[in-house]
Structure formats: structure tokens, C-alpha cells
Amino acid sequence: MFEARFPEALLLKKILESVKDLVQDANFECTESGITLQAMDNAHVSLVTLLLRGEGFDLYRVDKPESLGINLNSMSKIMRCAANNDTVTLDKLEGADTVRFLFESPNADRMSEFHLKLMDIDSETLEIPESMYHAEIELPSAELRRIVSDLSTMGDSVRISVSKEGVRFTVRGDEGSGSVILRQSTGVDKPEEAIHIVMNEPVEQSFALKYLNLFCKAAPLSARVQIKLSKDAPLLVNFSMNNIGYLSYYLAPKIGD
């Protein structure tokens, strides 16, 4: 038996919106400690990892670890049938080939349920090393979304360079070029808007804007985002979800520029 109750459908809706355009099918690994997901896009350029800790749920029970193979587009269609403030219970009996979605309104006067067929997904799990990053930047997620979207008007890839002057995002295209520079915030009157830059070593890498735009669909999940860069290593873009877990993306760099 597996059972997990989300206090609000909205969280699960936001998570799906953040993942479903990158990955079609994924295994939700459900263990005693929580739910995890790791999946690459078809081109193996980006990877998404999700952690939802068991203690972040209203109710969480896993008798035996379960791997739920789910088509995210189908799950997203089902989740659209839930009101944002409905509770969502996912459950699966041992040996069953479906997972049940139970939606309950806050005053318990409406209940609906959907059963989704599970799939056998043969996915490869990658070992992600705990790297020491050359630079780490924390900023409002809306700011990152704006930069990525603004620069996409001029080209396909962005060069991110971290130096003593701050972090610079540069785009070059057929029509011209553009750049945005962010500097370490001084003063602490609005901590939620602050930009924090930790540079262990200057670093410069190029990344496809198409993927960064998809990652920024997770902005509604978290007011703040961390981006971590190392020379010749994938970029890490991390959205923390307060007490429940995180949604992280890794993006392989463009090389030979």
C-alpha cells in the first residue's frame, strides 16, 4: 500500500507544469522517506530531479517501496480536474496496475476520483556527484525568468560569466546582442529581492536558452532560485519548496564556443 495526501492540489499542479514539457514519462519512486523522481529529456541535455519528503505531506504511508511509472501529460490532465485548494490523495494497492487520484474539496462536500494506468518505464538513473561549484548565485526566481525570457528575443544561447563585477548574461544573435548584469546586493531592506553571489573562481559557460525557459516554469514553486556553475560541468538550477523538498534541473553546457 502506498498513500500520500497533498494538502493542496496547487503544489502538484505547479510541479507538473514545471516538468511535463521536458519529460514525457517518469518513474515516481516512493519510499518511506518520500517521493523522488529523476528523468532526462529525450535529447539527454537536461535532467530534472524532484524530492518530496514524506514529512511534508498531510499523510504519508509506504509499506513497501513502489516505483510508479506515469505519463506526465495524462497526470496533468487529471490534475486539471482538481480545484487548486482541494486536497489530493494518491494511493495504490500492492500489485495494482493503476494509481488513484482522490480530490476532496476543503469543506468535504465534493469528492472525485480518477484512476491512472501505470506504465513500465525503463529509465536510466544517473549518479550526480556532489560537486564543489565555482560560483553560486541566489536570486528571485522571477528575475531569472525575466532575464532568460528577455535574452531569448535575440538568440538561442546565453553565456553566463561570473567575475568580480558580478554575474553577466550575454546573448548574441543574427540581429545583434544583449546582456544583463547582476551585482551582489548591498543592504538588506528587502531580503526576498536580494542577489547573492558567491564566487570561488571566475567561471564562464554557455547554455541553451530553450531549456532555461522550460526550467523557469518552476518559478511559481519558489520565490528564490539558486544557480550553480562550474567549468566543464552541467549547470544546476534549484528551486527549494520550503519544508517539503526541491525541484532541481541540470543542464549540459554548450561547448567549443
Partner: peptide
Amino acid sequence: VANQSRLDTFFKAK
């Protein structure tokens, strides 16, 4: 011209 690398180059399969 920059080429897109793949994640498999950096992370190994478990």
C-alpha cells in the same frame, strides 16, 4: 559555433 553537450558525458549511469 557552440555544440550542445550531453549530460551522459558528465554523469555516469548508476
